[in-house]
Amino acid sequence: MRSEQEAERAIELYADTVRRLCMVHLKNQADTEDIFQTVFLKYVLSTVVFENEEHEKAWFIRVTINACKDLLKSFFRSRTVPLEELLEEPASLSDENREVWQAVLALPLKYRDVVFLHYHEGYTAPQISRILGKNVNTIYTLLNRSKTLLKESLGGDGDE
């Protein structure tokens, strides 16, 4: 079991990433809290030795995505809330950002992780394929399609 200091450090470092991933997948605050508790408790109890921070971060991403998927699988019907409700939550979002988020959340679920990992975390397709445990070509395809879809919704200005 890890110490309190380690847990606090992990929360400081990775809370934002976990929060963003939660937002990509989930639609309300209660679920997000559940995911936070699940992910960080798993971290505290796990005995995994991380080679470096990158490794640790990848672990958090992987665990958060799995936890989100588990939650959606089990409570999908009962916990689904309309999109509007979600977008009220991060009150600090500007109109510009809100528009982008709406575009991202309008994407099918399978594109959202890839978009987040690529556009925000800056992972390459092979890295994403390792994190998500999918074929590299699949990731390329997902990236291309999501790019096309986002271009359509956000306007096709300045792709790369």
Partner: peptide, 29 residues
């Protein structure tokens, strides 16, 4: 589009309230 996306993601932060609750939960658990 890349920047817009990046900014939009960056704009989301874990609320301090959420972090505290998580810390408490871990300590309790």
């Amino acid at each position: 589009m890349n920047d817009r996306l990046k900014n939009a993601f960056e704009a989301v932060h874990a609320e301090s309230d959420l972090k505290e609750k998580t810390s408490e939960f871990l300590s309790r658990k």
